[in-house]
Design a protein around this nucleic acid. Structure first.
Lengths: 218, 218
DNA sequence: GGAATTGCCTATCAGTGATTGACTATCAAC
DNA sequence: GTTGATAGTCAATCACTGATAGGCAATTCC
């Protein structure tokens, strides 16, 4: 083994046993599943520990707080999304890029509602009325920047930096609204889901030629 | 006093003392203030009771559960929204109607984030994996129907029922996305909020003449 | 007067996130 | 081997949460 190298690095002459990281992964996997099934707020640390097969205090050997555990799950969920978005950016271009990107975004949210929920819809607790640090946001920014990149790629250089951000943020908000509402309010009397998604994404695109972007979904 | 009339109504020979309803209003007022200041989840029943000046168990004489108290606060707040939307519908018309309506919607969400959260962003606890009835949605549906009404008024009779719902739901989702993201991710590096809101609402409107609806926010 | 009702309280419950101190197995060093 | 440090674990416990039970005082009716 590489105990010697670890010893050189840490200087303590000791190296992590190896069970730690595995346990951590195990905890994260069970936490993701439980959070998705029952919601973050209703899942207790004891339930997570019970699912993993360890005691509740043992969780705190791997995560300083429940909040930290939630944030870690959140970050990983974002990773899956950004990976997919990056793939889309590499492939398509122009108007297709934006449509495909929006489609990938919506599909991700609807196919992995658990992950999407954790990533975008969960609000971190505010310590004392002030705004908390938002590490979940850090991962989210990466996804946003990819979307912004797509906007630049589609719109070309004719827009100012601020105009790009304005457009990207507006589009992102619009997509998020559809996904989050479909996830959070499935019993609402929605119109046909596929047509709604298609029309919604279409409304985000720049007009192909001179056709109005809205009201064209029929 | 009108104890006799009350007696005739209730049939029990007794009537509420009069302090009850006042206390209830007092509780609702303090709860609304505390929820807005610190968030629903971080405000405890003891804090509410302390603010009112009564003991914590006394709350349960007026509300069967904290959830019920939250919902009552939510319903009242939404009453304000629907009232405002109704007023807008009566006053404006055409393109202005939709812009003013969207503005009223966004302003409400941002000024009453907790009420908005309860109605649209909080997923009710699912008893056993299935989806629960959604009482919070009821208040929100009325707001949606008003929005739909506005769509009809603006778009005229040229659209089918389904096309109207399609458009209304897409627009609603778009507005919701902006509001919910601004609420849930306040630390995100947003562009100037006012301009974002303006551009976002503008993107929902039908093109004034032939100008593209997007990319015109600068 | 007595009886019933209202409004409120103290005391308490189970469950929550989090901390403490101790126990066990492992592994390096002698 | 034996020793000693360390990683990993857990029972016991803390302060706090939402919610309940039972009792006490004032009011209202007969």
């Amino acid at each position: 083994m590489d105990m010697d190298t670890a010893r050189l690095i840490t200087g303590t002459g000791r190296k992590p046993k190896g069970m730690g990281p595995e346990r951590r992964e195990e905890i994260l996997a069970h936490a993701l599943r439980l959070f998705s099934e029952h919601g973050v707020h209703t899942v207790s640390t004891r339930q997570i520990a019970g699912a993993v097969g360890i005691s509740q205090p043992s969780l705190y050997a791997y995560f300083p707080t429940k909040q930290a555990l939630v944030e870690e799950v959140c970050k990983r969920a974002f990773g899956a999304l950004t990976e997919r978005m990056r793939a889309v950016i590499g492939q398509a271009s122009g108007r297709d890029l934006m449509a495909t990107m929006g489609r990938a975004y919506v599909d991700f949210g609807l196919s992995q509602p658990d992950a999407y929920r954790v990533a975008f819809m969960i609000e971190v607790a505010r310590p004392d009325g002030g705004l908390a640090q938002d590490p979940a946001l850090m991962a989210g920014i990466e996804a946003y920047l990819l979307h912004r990149e797509a906007v630049v790629k589609v719109m070309g250089g004719g827009l100012s930096e601020e105009a790009i951000d304005l457009l990207a943020q507006s589009q992102w908000a619009s997509l998020h609204g559809l996904v989050s509402l479909l996830i959070a309010r499935p019993t609402f009397p929605w119109v046909d889901r596929e047509r709604l998604i298609e029309a919604h994404i279409d409304s985000l695109l720049p007009p192909p030629t001179a056709k109005p972007s809205r009201v064209s979904g029929t």
